[in-house]
Design a binder for these strands. Structure first.
Lengths: 114, 114
DNA sequence: TGAGTATATACCTTACGGAGTATATATCCG
DNA sequence: CGGATATATACTCCGTAAGGTATATACTCA
């Protein structure tokens, strides 16, 4: 279970993270918005917390959870090695691979940092 | 198992994808480089193929596998909602540019698979 | 055609993780 | 204090997926 990848393999956990991406939320908020039993929410939050995806703060009787991005950064970093397969600019390496479909090679986007 | 996320939850499959990110390879290549039993490699490749992560072509007696990026694009798209947590420019300007980027009139659209 | 190589599949076993249910802990307020 | 609310944990059950081993299929070439 350790790896960030196996943590986000669970659909309910992804849903929880998506909610928290918008704003921090209490357990009850999540329970209601995702229509999940409360123990299930707490259990998933525990897994997410122990894996570093979220952290919580106390607000009177509730716990408010919010995103901690580190493990997601790790996933993003792993994905980096594949981005050349779908980014538009055609570099020499990609041309070396079998992309016969060289339709509009000089079509250029506005320059941005990726 | 259906989701792209659960497919890449398996460490050996991630290792296989990383190898293929560099260049296409045969089953035997992967077997040797990852020190995995051949049936295990074949089984993982089958899972990856059926989920659309790889495709194979025949080269005499061998099968050469290579990356098909679609499911990884899906993962990348899911990650997008969290990027503001670790990118440096979180201001309205960048969000505006992102939006314009995606609405640019290119022919490539990411296909959505269920 | 038959041996050899490359890859796929079948079968069994096992472990892990998620769901569900019940219960525990903690905090607030009247 | 005691009841109500909010959240966490314990425990059992069950499905699924990965590993291992054996075997099947497919192709090549002498």
């Amino acid at each position: 279970m350790e790896s960030a990848f196996s943590i986000i393999a669970e659909p309910n956990r992804r849903a929880i993270l998506s909610l928290l991406a918008a704003s921090e939320r209490s357990v009850g908020d999540i329970e209601e918005e995702l229509q999940l039993p409360q123990p299930s929410v707490s259990k998933h939050l525990r897994v997410l917390r122990e894996a570093g995806f979220v952290e919580s703060r106390v607000d009177t009787q509730r716990r408010l959870y919010r995103i901690k991005p580190e493990p997601l950064i790790e996933v993003d970093a792993w994905l980096a090695q594949f981005r050349r397969f779908w980014t538009t600019h055609v570099d020499a390496l990609e041309r070396h691979l079998d992309h016969m479909d060289q339709s509009r090679p000089t079509k250029r986007k506005t320059r941005r940092k990726k």
